[in-house]
């Protein structure tokens, strides 16, 4: 991990500590919590796309598995929430392996469509066979740690963003070590990678599993926070949202996922004043940012910053 990343992490940690202590408005807290949850899933997708060059239009499937598996485990078996989240992550990881092994032979559009198909199948299965069917189910145990329930919005925000910080540190460590370098190399030249002895298929499967586990953690956090879930939260639309977050924020760095997640989560809220035009405004903003911020916000900002720094020196 480089110094810039360390500084950015410290600033983020300070913000995470400060905001819930200063702002008590529960609406702001809710937005902060949802941003954090989305960011965790977005980081996984960021690594998958930006580093390994793979696309997934089915992340909502893993997000849904994380939410449902963790909820069912805690509700039906009374297991502690952290154990349930771990269990859900394992289920998602298995699903990811099953999907990845045949999919990774596919490229570009075909891979995107295979993941899309997977996400939709998860959605349909949850709709038909999930507890409560299309209307979902409630009374999911809230987040808890060592038997102490975490329900205060500020505490939930700290927990979610705490998870996010851990995910960030883990990801940055990974990307700047042997496996992460291999993943970035894969994006550069697969031919050279195989000549260097890298097992490309295994690497791709592993990074796919990693992104699924992140999405699963995000889904579990979501379920235990809102304590009521239904399949509609895990539809294709959510996969698209995650993809939007990553593309908008910038796929070349995990920070792109974080920034993109915050923006995309806050956007519909700020558009509420448009009333029935909100979907239209939302679509327009996405279209325009794709047209004009093609490389993603974070890489563009970093470049601007570096150029101005050079200008001063």
């Amino acid at each position: 991990m480089t110094r810039e990343h360390g500084i950015a992490l410290l600033i983020l940690a300070a913000l995470v500590l400060a905001i819930p202590s200063i702002v008590t408005d529960s609406y702001v807290m809710t937005l902060m919590i949802f941003s954090g949850i989305n960011a965790i899933a977005a980081i996984g997708l960021c690594i998958l796309m930006g580093s390994a060059g793979q696309v997934s239009l089915g992340q909502a499937g893993f997000y849904g598995i994380g939410a449902y598996a963790s909820s069912v485990l805690s509700q039906s078996f009374g297991l502690p929430v952290p154990a349930c989240m771990a269990g859900a992550a394992i289920v998602s990881a298995l699903a990811a392996v099953i999907l990845a092994v045949p999919s990774l032979r596919l490229k570009g559009h075909y891979l995107a469509v295979a993941t899309l198909g997977f996400g939709e199948i998860v959605y349909i299965v949850l709709n038909e066979f999930g507890p409560g069917g299309p209307s979902g189910f409630g009374d999911i145990p809230p987040l808890s740690f060592a038997g102490v329930a975490i329900t205060e919005p500020a505490h939930v925000a700290w927990t979610v963003w705490g998870f996010l910080l851990l995910v960030l540190v883990f990801s940055l460590n990974l990307l700047n070590a042997r496996p992460g370098r291999a993943l970035r190399a894969l994006h550069g030249s697969e031919t050279a990678c195989s000549a260097m002895g890298l097992d490309i298929v295994r690497l791709k499967i592993k990074v796919f599993v990693l992104s699924a586990v992140y999405a699963s953690i995000a889904g579990s956090l979501y379920a235990h926070y809102v304590t009521f879930i239904s399949p509609s939260s895990f539809s294709f639309f959510h996969s698209v949202l995650l993809l939007m977050m990553v593309v908008l924020g910038g796929i070349t760095t995990v920070w792109g996922g974080v920034i993109g997640a915050v923006i995309i989560t806050l956007l519909p809220e700020t558009l509420k004043s448009f009333e029935e035009l909100d979907v239209l405004a939302y679509g327009l903003i996405l279209t325009l940012s794709l047209l004009f911020l093609r490389r993603g916000i974070v890489p563009i900002v970093i470049d601007k910053f570096r150029t101005s720094e050079r200008g001063h020196a």
């Binding site: 939007m244 979907v279 279209t287």
Partner: peptide, 8 residues
Amino acid sequence: AVSIVMRG
């Protein structure tokens, strides 16, 4: 994104 605009 365009499809979202159209839906809107």
